[in-house]
Design a protein around this nucleic acid. Structure first.
Lengths: 195, 195
DNA sequence: AATTATACGGAGGGCCCCTCCGTTTTCAAG
DNA sequence: CTTGAAAACGGAGGGGCCCTCCGTATAATT
């Protein structure tokens, strides 16, 4: 019992694989600008695929976003590990947040993705959102353990703050401004409350 | 010259005034929950008014939001003035931000309104958004003058941060969490950079 | 009561969401 | 090489919302 061979599974159909690829490529292009109104029908059109096919591959908007940005999320998670080993606690945290900002600046759709993920994450914990919370959680715990930042802010809180600040940046050159805001926030985390 | 009588202006039509009022009431109700998908047609339906009438009174979504929340914005602006006279600089700033959060918690639509305003504010400076930047600008300048916070964060920056953080709060009881985030931010503003 | 500036309402064209199902394609067994 | 069924495809269709336009209704004025 258990690992039943489940009969010889057919080889996945060629068109299935092909269309999935087309959809992911098209989605990445459509989401690039990160405009909030990115329409799924536009993705299907660009992929030259029926709308039904899109929905069969990715039943929800979130599922599509997740698939499109999985790679990026994993990259950020890895970066957190690297930084945890090579940098002092607070610096690691700060640098990781900066990296997030840079990534979002390049792939603006990720921001929408993350915002979407948070929206529904309460119940579904959609998207690789928890990958990120885990990653930053490690950095956070480390800094707390070192006594360098306050201990009442959770990883979710931190990501909320980060994403929120990014959400507000849509001027052409928003990166420096948001970076400054995030730096202020980190300063606040590290502020000595007892003067 | 100047104040030309411009011909005897007709008295405004009764139905015009009545419908405007109905629309504002309906909008306030529909926007209460602050759900991002608040539809203007829903507002018109609730006001028992044609959709055309809604658009004639408020040509854009922003215009409607502005009219609905004008009172609240002015209230916050006044509060800033009061606090500036009665509280120490940093405390005033902090308390004003807390008041914002409370206000948003009650009238969730205000958040959407502000976010919308920022979206288009670059050119249009829609909504009473600049009322708020002016208000918080005073508090900020005061604290900077007193040498109690850093001087490279603008009023717009601060509002961006505030609104961003609020945008990320949709759990039932998000107020304490966001308040904590904002407090961290203020701590960061007031952090002594030179150790 | 007649006149006319003002307002009203909702049909209509566009775009999008998502589901459902008849048709087509692919795989693999004979 | 057939052939049959599982697996995919695609897009029509029902439902919403956005916003404009214009024929109709009505309040203020004469």
């Amino acid at each position: 019992m258990g690992a039943a061979p489940k009969k010889a599974t057919r080889k996945p159909r060629a068109d299935f694989v092909r269309n999935r690829e087309r959809l992911l490529t098209a989605a990445a292009e459509v989401f690039r600008s990160g405009s909030r109104d990115a329409s799924l029908e536009a993705v299907a059109r660009r992929a030259e695929v029926g709308i039904g096919t899109l929905y069969r591959h990715f039943p929800t908007r979130e599922a599509l976003f997740e698939a499109v940005y999985r790679r990026e999320v994993e990259q950020l998670a890895e970066l957190a590990e690297t930084l945890a080993e090579s940098e002092p606690p607070v610096a690691a945290l700060r640098q990781w947040l900066h990296a997030d900002i840079r990534m979002i600046a390049t792939k603006r759709g990720m921001l929408t993705a993350l915002a979407l993920a948070i929206d529904n994450s309460c119940d579904l914990y959609a998207f690789s959102f928890h990958h990120l919370t885990r990653a930053v959680g490690v950095l956070l715990a480390r800094a707390v353990a070192a006594g360098e930042i306050r201990d009442d802010i959770t990883a979710e809180d931190l990501l909320h703050a980060l994403i929120g600040m990014c959400l507000m940046g849509q001027e052409p050159d928003w990166v420096p401004g948001v970076t400054r805001l995030v730096d202020v926030f980190v300063d606040g985390l590290a502020a000595k409350r007892d003067r």
